[in-house]
C-alpha cells in the first residue's frame, strides 16, 4: 500500500494529516457538526482535534467586549469561559468519540499544583481512554508567583511540565504550548523539554491592546487581549524556525513541533512545516472560512503529488538549503 504522504507522527501518535485545530477556536468539536459538510471539510481533513481550554473549576469568562478585529488580525480576551473539567469529562468529551479523531485536551490553571491536579483528574477519570494528549497552556498567569505568566519564566515552565508529566505518564502525549511574549523562545522551549514534554506547540497569541478613539478607551472589556490571525504569522514561523534550528531535540524530531499562528492557506501551512513544524494548528482563519481545513488539505495534497514528497520529508526543509 502506498503511504499517505500527509501522514505524520507526534512521537507515537500517528496523524492522518498534519492539520489540527488551535485550542479555543473550535469548541469541543460537536458545535462543528452543525456545519453541513463537517465530515468532508473538517473531520476528514483533521489529523487531531484540540479542545478549547479546560480548567479545574467552571469559568465565567471576561466581561464584554471580548473580540475586536485589527488589520488582518483578531484581538480577543475571552477569559477561558468553560464549564469546568467535571462537566467536560461527563458531557463534552464523550461526544467527541464518534468522530474517530485523536483528541488533545488543552488545560489551564493558576498554579503548578492546580495544573498537576487537573492533569491527574483528566487521566484518572478518562475511563474510555479518549484523550490522546494534554496540551499545557503556559500563557496563563501564575498566581503563586505574583501573576507573572508561567511561559515567560523558564523555571516555572519546567516545574509545570514536570508536574503534569508526572501524572500523565508515557501513554498520553504531553504538549507544551509556548507563549510568544518572550525575548528568546528557545529558553522556555528548552525548559519544557527539560521538564519532560513530548511535543512543543507554538505560538499562543501575542499580547495587544486596541483603543476605540471615538470613545477614548480600550475596546476590550479586559483592556488587553491576545492577537491572532495572519498578522502574527511571521512571528510564529520565526519561533518555530529558531527552536528547530537551535534545539537538538527539535532538529532530530525527538521533540516535534506543532506550528500555530496565522495560517490561512496551504502555503502558510507549508511555511511552518519548512521552518520545522511536524504538524500545524489553524484557528482564527477557521472563523473566516469554515472550509479552511479542507482547502488546506487539498492544497497540500496537490503540492505533495506534484513534487513527489511527503510532509515528513519537508519538515525543516528551509534549514537545509
Amino acid at each position: 500500500m502506498v503511504k499517505n504522504p500527509l501522514e505524520v507522527a507526534l512521537r507515537n501518535l500517528r496523524l492522518k494529516t498534519p492539520l489540527m485545530t488551535a485550542s479555543g477556536t473550535a469548541g469541543h468539536l460537536d458545535e462543528l457538526t452543525a456545519l453541513k459538510d463537517y465530515r468532508t471539510v473538517i473531520i476528514d481533513a483533521l489529523g487531531a482535534f484540540v479542545t478549547k481550554g479546560v480548567t479545574l473549576k467552571p469559568k465565567r469568562g471576561n466581561p464584554e467586549l471580548r473580540v475586536v478585529e485589527t488589520r488582518t488580525g483578531l484581538l480577543n480576551s475571552i477569559g477561558l469561559q468553560n464549564s469546568g473539567v467535571e462537566i467536560f469529562l461527563k458531557q463534552e468529551l464523550p461526544r467527541t468519540l464518534q468522530y474517530e479523531l485523536p483528541i488533545i485536551v488543552n488545560i489551564s490553571a493558576d498554579t503548578a499544583q492546580e495544573f498537576e491536579e487537573l492533569a491527574a483528574y483528566l487521566i484518572d477519570n478518562d475511563a474510555g481512554r479518549i484523550i490522546s494528549g494534554i496540551e499545557i497552556n503556559v500563557s496563563c498567569p501564575n498566581l503563586s508567583e505574583g501573576g507573572a505568566i508561567f511561559g515567560t519564566n523558564p523555571y516555572a515552565v519546567e516545574n509545570v511540565v514536570k508536574a503534569v508529566k508526572r501524572r500523565v505518564g508515557d501513554e498520553v502525549l504531553v504538549i507544551t504550548k509556548l507563549t510568544p511574549n518572550v525575548t528568546d523562545i528557545t529558553q522556555p522551549a528548552r525548559a519544557a523539554i527539560a521538564g519532560g514534554t513530548d511535543v512543543l506547540s507554538m505560538i499562543n497569541t501575542l499580547r495587544g491592546i486596541a483603543i476605540d478613539v471615538d470613545a477614548g478607551k480600550p475596546f476590550l472589556g479586559n483592556v488587553y487581549g491576545g492577537l491572532s490571525g495572519p498578522a502574527i504569522k511571521p512571528v510564529g514561523v520565526y519561533m518555530v524556525y529558531e527552536c528547530f534550528g537551535k534545539i537538538t531535540e527539535c532538529k532530530n524530531k525527538t521533540v516535534p513541533i506543532i506550528g500555530i499562528g496565522g495560517i490561512s492557506t496551504w502555503r502558510d501551512a507549508l511555511e511552518y512545516i519548512m521552518a520545522g513544524a511536524t504538524a500545524v494548528g489553524i484557528g482564527t482563519a477557521w472563523f473566516v472560512d469554515p472550509g479552511i481545513f479542507g482547502e488546506v488539505k487539498k492544497g497540500l495534497d496537490k503540492y505533495l503529488a506534484k513534487n513527489e514528497k511527503t510532509i515528513d520529508e519537508l519538515v525543516g526543509k528551509a534549514h537545509y538549503c
Binding site: 477556536t25 452543525a34 469568562g61 471580548r66 480577543n76 482564527t284 477557521w286 472563523f287 469554515p290
Partner: peptide
C-alpha cells in the same frame, strides 16, 4: 446583536449576560 467572530458558537465572543446560570 453583538460583535462576532465565528457565528457558530465556538469562539465565545458574542456573549450577553443572561439569568439562567447555575
Amino acid at each position: 446583536e453583538k460583535r462576532m467572530a465565528c457565528g457558530i458558537g465556538v469562539c465565545l465572543s458574542c456573549v450577553c449576560e443572561t439569568k439562567n446560570g447555575e
